[in-house]
Every structure is written in C-alpha cells, then in structure tokens.
C-alpha cells in the first residue's frame, strides 16, 4: 500500500511539474482572490488582520476545489482509466498517493497564501508562523477529504457536483483551521482546534482507505 501510494504521489507530482497547472493557473487565482478580498475589506488595517484567517481559508477552499478537480482529471480520460485499472493497483494506496500529492500541492500554495495574508491582510508574522503546523494539518485533512470527494464525483458529468457535495465535509475543517489561525494571531490556545483537524485528518484517511476502491469501481 505504501509503495503504491509513493508511486502514485510521485506520478501526480511529476505531472504537475510538467504541466504546471497549479503554478500558472491555480496559484494566480488564489493570489488574485486574496487581493480582491483585501480590496473588498477597504483600507482599515485592523479589520484586515482580524479577517485574515477566515479569508485565507476561504481562498484555500476555492484552491482546494480546483486542485481536487485537477487531481481527478489526471485519471479521467477513458483510455487512461482502463489502462491504469488493468495495473491492478491497490485502491487504498492510490487514495493515499493522490491525497499525499494534493497535500504537497496545497502546502506549497498555502505557504504563498499565508505570505499574502501577512503582506496584504496585515496578519501578524509571529502569529502566522505559530499557526503553520495547524495550517499544515488542516490542509492535509482537506487533501484527504478532497481526494475522497473527488473519487465520489469522478464519473463523467458529475465533476461540477464537487463543490456542493464536498461543502458539508469541508466546513468543519475550515472552521477548525480558521479558529486555530485566529487563536495563534490572538496569542490564545490552539490545541482544541488542532484536535478537530487531526481527528478529521485521521477520519478522512481511514474512510478513503476503506472506500476509495468502491468509489473507483463506480466510475
């Protein structure tokens, strides 16, 4: 399972390195969304800082949806799907690999968006650095949940359902992540929100390992 996960993750990341879809399409979208959010808030510096965690995670949600769609699209062509299916890869390993690759991509984009939060939304640098581990865990949970929902919506003609179907699953993660980042900026305790993100990460990884094969078969 681990060998399959590493193989699939390496393949997805290599495809991203070649195609640069996330670099040239998704990342600019995220930065523009962050800039627009800052403009919409107006010039009040204090208000920006207070809203930064929520805006960061709102933009991260959009970026995650695009990333999940891209990750699903890679396997989407009918001939590719059939050929790869005949490789007989362990579905749990495929899920872990796709989630890992998506997590790596989200971590990279998240780092840029966090820098944007500091520069454009005036979030405190020290608090943002303190929030880094919780952001990493939350983005990991989003990647696991997104890979599962991506498989759920992987059939032809159902990709546009992803935002609606994944929304209930993403909301607790976004709230926990936002609260953790907010607490870090305010100098408060983080662990309660960390715990939610960690439990969600474990739950989505467990669900994905169990269910990915079933969802894959339904494509």
């Amino acid at each position: 399972m681990i060998a399959t996960a590493l193989l699939v993750a390496g393949k997805d990341l290599r495809i991203e390195a070649r195609s640069r879809v996330l670099l040239w399409q998704v990342l600019p979208f995220g930065v523009v969304a962050l800039v627009l959010a800052g403009i919409a808030l107006g010039p009040a510096r204090a208000g920006h800082s207070d809203a930064a965690p929520g805006l960061f995670y709102l933009v991260t949600l959009f970026v995650t949806l695009l990333g999940v769609n891209r990750s699903t699209q890679i396997e989407g062509a009918s001939g590719t799907r059939s050929s790869v299916a005949t490789l007989g890869l362990d579905p749990a390993g495929v899920f872990l690999g796709k989630a890992l690759a998506l997590a790596v991509e989200l971590w990279a984009i998240g780092a840029v968006l966090l820098a944007g939060s500091v520069l454009l939304l005036h979030a405190a640098l020290a608090g943002t650095l303190q929030a880094l581990p919780s952001v990493a865990v939350t983005l990991g949970a989003l990647a696991a949940a997104g890979s599962l929902y991506g498989a759920l919506c992987g059939g032809a003609g159902t990709a546009t359902l992803l935002p609606a179907i994944s929304f209930p699953g993403f909301v607790p993660l976004l709230i926990a992540g936002e609260r953790a980042y907010h607490s870090a900026l305010a100098g408060g305790a983080l662990w309660q929100w960390w715990l939610i993100s960690l439990v969600a990460l474990a739950a989505y990884v467990g669900l994905g390992v169990l269910l990915y094969g079933v969802l894959e078969e339904s494509w």
């Binding site: 393949k11 890679i74 059939s82 050929s83 005949t86």
Partner: peptide, 14 residues
C-alpha cells in the same frame, strides 16, 4: 491482462 484502448492509454503530461 493488458488493455489498449483506441483513445490512448497513458498520462499525456508524462
């Protein structure tokens, strides 16, 4: 088994 579809059977970006 090995499958070769008429649409192509691999990852285009690799």
């Amino acid at each position: 088994v090995g499958w070769l579809g008429h649409e192509g059977s691999f990852y285009d970006d690799l």
